[in-house]
Nucleic acid binder design. Structure first.
Length: 459
DNA sequence: TGGGGTTAT
DNA sequence: ATAACCC
């Protein structure tokens, strides 16, 4: 379909080193936002790689869990995050593939994001399988084109939430209808070029677009007209369903006696602020009304690369060192393909504890010595050994190695990723790196200054 | 309960 | 460095 919105921002390879967070869009009153959500993403990727799995119940396994499954499996009662035992009991004939290595999912995920960037450069990733796209400007273009063509007929693509009647005299309705057509084009091109199906939601902000995208589930799309906003929020059976209200906040709200979205809407703002703090209180109460002015923040290349593994037990230093080296080998391969260099490294562990174990992670991080950073392009073996050394020092900061220990997870993370050369005379990087700390108060300048202070201070 | 991610404090 | 959030 001839849908391209002009050159966009170019390929990911070209903008990989581009700055983040320089966002063109200010807060506009009448935005049009699309949320896209692939159907059972990992299972879809596996089925593309092995089409024989198409018509069979398929589960993607990580350790003891079915993290996702195709719709054949769902028909037979398999749910996301079901234990392998329960799943095999329900459905012994299910095919299981191991999905602990995320490489192919990550690659497909970025292809989707890049494809969406052809429609608008304002694409924000949420996990591997969801994206927000701000299509306000594209919609405006089509709106003026529509006017030139003599205000001909516009129609909706996909569902309208609540089957609400469209008012063709309402410009916002027209914008959202155009948005629904663009969403359909996005889904069409995702299918034609990548073979992926998914849902989309169209609305005037991120919160609403995300909430509405799930209303018709596999491979369908829905547009929300403003008059149905309260119905959409009212359809949520619990405040926990509001994106942005997570596990902890839900617990605190329940202690206040709140459980429905309506409860939160009508609750005293002052008491809410006293218990949650002003910023969280005001934020989530706005969410409860469907108010969300947060911009679609282009994700660009990732801020961090990490690799982790969980296990039943790891209790000796040599075991830890082996696992760390494995993780690091994988990460070094990824960072060299990325092309940027990490300036910070972090080790995260999870200690065994019989009670709730997914809350107790500890981490230590440190700057990577500049001599090592420079060796990054030059073959991974040159940096592997010194980095293992650094990580073992970080490990000993958390664990007294002469006392018994029991770990259930190790994770290594590269962060503070910088595009490398950038320090040639005449470049921005050169001047930011030179000279006098206490000049202006730009964030870039402070970061560089801080980084310099930390050099020679490693571990 | 996995193997990732982000931002705020 | 941790705590919260997201998938």
């Amino acid at each position: 379909p001839g849908i391209h919105a002009g050159p966009g921002r170019g390929s990911r390879a070209q903008c990989k080193h581009g700055p983040r967070g320089l966002r063109p869009t200010g807060s506009k009153a009448h935005r049009v936002i699309v949320h896209t959500d692939l159907d059972c993403f990992y299972a879809q990727v596996e089925m593309i790689h092995n089409p024989e799995l198409r018509d069979k119940p398929l589960g993607v396994q990580q350790k003891n869990l079915v993290v996702t499954c195709n719709y054949e499996a769902r028909k037979l009662g398999i749910k996301k995050l079901m234990s392998i035992r329960d799943a095999k009991e329900k459905c012994p004939q299910m095919v299981l593939v191991n999905g602990e290595d995320l490489t192919q999912y990550r690659e497909m995920s970025y292809k989707v994001t890049e494809l969406l960037e052809e429609f608008s450069p304002l694409v924000e990733r949420l996990g591997f399988d969801e994206n927000f796209v701000d299509i306000t400007e594209l919609v405006e273009k089509r709106l003026v084109q529509l006017h030139r063509d003599g205000c001909s007929k516009v129609s909706v693509s996909g569902h309208v939430y609540n089957n609400q009647p469209v008012n063709l005299n309402d410009v916002m309705h027209i914008r959202l209808l155009i948005g629904s057509q663009i969403a359909a084009e996005m889904r069409e091109v995702m299918y034609n070029r990548l073979g992926l199906t998914g849902c989309a939601g169209v609305a005037s902000n991120k919160l609403l677009s995300k909430l509405v995208s799930g209303t018709f589930k596999p491979n369908q799309q829905t547009v929300l007209l403003p008059e149905s906003c309260q119905d959409l929020l009212g359809s949520l059976d619990h405040i926990r369903k509001v994106p942005g209200i997570g596990y902890k906040t839900t617990k605190r709200l329940e202690l206040l006696g709140l459980s429905s979205v309506r409860d939160l809407q009508t609750f005293s703002p002052v008491i809410l602020e006293e218990t949650l703090g002003v910023s969280v209180a005001q934020h989530i109460q706005k969410l409860s009304y469907g108010d969300d002015d947060s911009p679609v923040a282009p994700s660009g290349p990732p801020q961090s690369l990490s690799d982790e593994d969980s296990f039943k037990k790891c209790s000796s230093e040599v075991e830890v060192e082996k696992k760390i080296e494995e993780l690091l080998v994988n990460l070094l391969d990824r960072i060299s393909k990325d092309g940027r260099k990490p300036h910070t490294i972090r080790l995260t562990i999870r200690k065994f504890s019989s009670a709730y174990k997914w809350f107790n992670r500890e981490s230590r991080q440190c700057p990577i010595p500049s001599q090592i950073i420079q060796k990054f392009g030059t073959g991974n073996d040159n940096v592997l050994t010194p980095l293992v050394g650094i990580l073992m020092k970080l490990f000993r900061k958390m664990i007294k190695v002469d006392e018994p220990f029991h770990l259930t997870l190790l994770s290594v993370c590269f962060l503070n990723l910088k595009s490398l050369p950038s320090l040639t005379k005449g470049s921005i990087g050169f001047y930011l790196t030179q000279s006098s700390p206490p000049s202006s108060s730009g964030k870039k300048l402070r970061e560089v200054t801080k980084d310099h202070k930390m050099e020679g201070d490693q571990v």
